[in-house]
Design a protein around this nucleic acid. Structure first.
Lengths: 316, 316
DNA sequence: GAATTTCATAACGATCTGTTATACTGATGC
DNA sequence: GCATCAGTATAACAGATCGTTATGAAATTC
């Protein structure tokens, strides 16, 4: 005995509403359609599903049991419909993001949480990587969207950068660092302290090398490397060490009052943060929503940084 | 977005098995049918449900979520099919029985439990009543089957008795009753003890009256009445009272060794126990099974009683 | 017992289903 | 890199099914 699921749903609707007419209305059908379905079901099952000739239509035990299964299907069907609707407007789905570790840890994770306040049914899968990895992951459709500093894209690579924050590197240290006490700290002083090297593969590492070269420094006291952002910060908090960091990352930590940036202008390449996506395939609605949220989030951040810097300048 | 539930089930089958061909096979369909359903679904949903061009067919998150709902429906559908199968062979369903209190309590309740050892999914609803009530309940389709002593049925009543046990009334008392010590207890001795009257409406009450009349007794010391079987037995256990009971009910209590029957032959009308059912509507499979079980159960009981009585005779 | 509501049946067009046959595409082998 | 192969998509068609309107039958209600 194999059922057409729709028939069981119709049965469920009739049992639930207590009438063929009402059941049909519940499903948006005409009454004869449902009536015929019931007759057909009874014939096929070979057992009565309703007690005939009773006006508040009353199911037999078998009819009732079958209707319960139908109700399960009806609920599942409704849920499926809702799911598609919410998926379409980006209210459900999966967003697979990748990005450079410091940015992800400092800025994106929090944004994800904020995003889910309005999109609770969107799942976010986060991955770490630097540009080459991210580019490959995007091409291989392992992630939907990458967040990393702008890099060079081949022509016709099928990828696209959208800048979300202008970049600037700073030298970070703990708030009690002795260099902060100096009236005018000089770049050469930077060589007096132990350094934390950014993770290998990180653009920051290249930037650090360029920075040192600009001082004519050939050697640097690297005492720690390989840690994630939290490790680096915790190390910094416990020593007068220095490291190079995107300004926005240091800025994001300002509330903690544990690390800050040295007021030393250092050379820095153009490293604007951007969203990297594929151009060949359309983004799923949830990804689209998330990307929009990230853009507006960084737009706010940009203004915040701007006002903050103006305030700091005035405060000087 | 409203789905044809069957489509979601097909989607579920494909996701579950990991291939269109296998999914189709799981549902007993040809591959093109399922393939077309998938194409159609994707077009209607407007979002890809599978990542194209991957051989171990891989669903998108949306496809996967939809498939989960489809799986729910598939499971419900299977359960519904199983339910009908088990109903057909009487392995599930509801049996609504009614009967005279003493028989139900003494004999039927235990049989119900035994029945459900082989039919665990059959629910039994038990009701009490005497013949007129049971007849009415059957006609009103409130019960499927009644168990009571055979009574007079009108011609064309649409009901039918099937005898399951020949009837015989005995005088019951506790095993320590003084009358049991007498060599040859006489009917007249019965008037010396207090009596328990069977419940009003009970055939036993009429039988008791007839019994007394046969002794020429006009008065009897009725000290207790209205109790269910358990009350009557508990009363009997605590006093040298007497009461009239169907022999089978006393017999059913033999293991308890608390009450027994006096070896006094008393006049008794023909009161064979029977199953009363409607003849106009077919019994549901579960009821049929139950009726068969009751018949064979009483068949065994009949033999048991016979052997038991022969043994008692030999023992004398 | 008449009115009204509800259910069952009939007939019909449109749609959809499932089938077979066949072309296509990605995986696998050398 | 090309051939082979398994699995998937497409096409075409016959049959079933759906949902509709119109209408008759049955039961409830007043």
């Amino acid at each position: 005995m194999k059922f057409d699921e729709r028939h069981l749903i119709q049965l469920a609707a009739v049992v639930k509403t207590g009438g063929v007419t009402e059941g049909a209305a519940l499903l948006g059908l005409a009454q004869p359609a449902v009536s015929r379905t019931l007759s057909m079901l009874e014939k096929r099952v070979g057992e009565p599903l309703f007690i005939r000739g009773r006006r508040p239509l009353q199911p037999t035990p078998l009819g009732l049991s079958l209707a319960e299964h139908g109700l399960v299907m009806l609920a599942a069907s409704r849920k499926a419909s809702d799911l598609v609707e919410s998926f379409r407007v980006g209210k459900s789905g999966v967003v697979r993001i990748g990005g450079t570790p410091f940015f992800m840890d400092a800025l994106i994770a929090g944004l994800c949480a904020e995003f889910q306040a309005s999109h609770p049914d969107v799942r976010i899968d986060q991955n770490y990587g630097y540009f080459p990895d991210l580019r490959a992951a995007l091409k291989a459709d392992q992630i939907d969207l990458a967040i990393c500093p702008i890099d060079i894209l081949d022509e016709g690579s099928g990828l696209e950068f959208q800048q979300i924050l202008p970049g600037r590197n700073v030298v970070a240290c703990r708030v009690t660092h002795p260099l902060l006490l100096k009236r005018r700290p000089q770049p050469s002083h930077l060589l007096d302290y132990p350094w934390i090297a950014p993770p290998p593969g990180s653009p920051l590492l290249a930037d650090l090398r360029a920075l040192l070269l600009s001082f004519g420094a050939t050697e640097i006291k690297i005492r720690y490397s390989g840690g994630s952002l939290m490790s680096v910060i915790n190390y910094l908090k416990s020593a007068d060490a220095l490291t190079i960091m995107p300004h926005s990352v240091v800025f994001a930590q300002r509330k903690e009052k544990s690390i800050t940036a040295l007021p030393i202008a250092i050379p820095h390449p153009e490293r604007a943060l951007a969203i990297l996506t594929r151009t060949d395939a359309p983004l799923s609605p949830a990804v689209e929503q998330f990307a929009g949220f990230v853009r507006s989030g960084f737009e706010s951040l940009r203004h915040l940084i701007k006002r903050h810097e103006e305030a700091v300048v005035w405060g000087l």
